[in-house]
Design a binder for these strands. Structure first.
Lengths: 136, 136
DNA sequence: ATAATTGCAAACACTTTGCACCTGT
DNA sequence: ACAGGTGCAAAGTGTTTGCAATTAT
């Protein structure tokens, strides 16, 4: 099976590249439509699956079981996502602690942490002030 | 609104308590049915929502977007879940590194990590040997 | 030419909701 | 008695699949 280069695939990939943030399939479809490029739902899902397998995009799921979101990664991503379960904001953590985490989990648990698939849930600075972790 | 104590709620909660692991709604329904206690799908979902909000159970989602899984937490849980994206096995990490993580994210990012909601994705020992993190 | 891709509509799996009936207090 | 809970069937999500038409090589 060969991978053809098609108009749709280029559209989806460059849309992901141009909007370097997490987007749901629907957002991508709507965004492309707004730019005058109608790409079918089916095709967008198939592209995202393709890119995800090829390492060009990462797929994330979030805590409430909403739709999956995708983000351009170009094959190399180097930060974690911190997602607030209260206000749903997502923060990127770019600091070196991630490498310490990877080292720890690899050395003590034989586990290779995926930087792009892991999302740390909790409360952000603002929401953390008002709530404890009581009902977490 | 008052929360009534019903037979169904007790059944679901004690089933969660007795099987202290992650279970999907379907597993719970089937398990109860096998024990001779038919509780409707609707009710099980409503119970899980209720317990989750009350801090008696935690809801987890997994990397492939499959169904949500629930686990008894009794209001206090103290470990992370490491999930292998290759073989789908889930490992619990009970070690103290988690507290170091919490400290780090709190001190450097103002972020209060939820132990019960966070799942770390990656490759387990066995799967990590054969694959790199290439397509992650 | 022909293998792969597209897009529609229909199927899917999981979860939620409307509503009449039942149960706990 | 009556607020609240249950369960069925039906509706809703987000995502995937069968298939005929289309496109890339």
């Amino acid at each position: 099976m060969e991978v053809y280069k098609t108009k749709q695939r280029e559209l989806v990939l460059s849309y992901l590249k141009d909007n370097n943030r997490c987007m749901s399939a629907d957002e991508i479809i709507a965004g492309l439509r707004d730019n005058g490029h109608a790409v079918s739902k089916t095709t967008v899902y198939r592209c995202l699956e393709l890119f995800s397998n090829a390492g060009q995009a990462s797929k994330f799921l979030n805590s409430q079981g909403e739709s999956a979101v995708y983000r351009y990664s170009g094959g190399h991503d180097s930060h974690f996502h911190l997602k607030c379960t209260e206000c749903n904001k997502t923060v990127c953590a770019d600091c070196g602690f991630i490498n310490r985490m990877q080292e720890h989990f690899y050395n003590h648990h034989g586990f290779t942490v995926s930087k792009t698939h892991t999302v740390i849930y909790g409360l952000c600075r603002d929401c953390g002030r008002s709530k404890g972790e009581t009902s977490e």
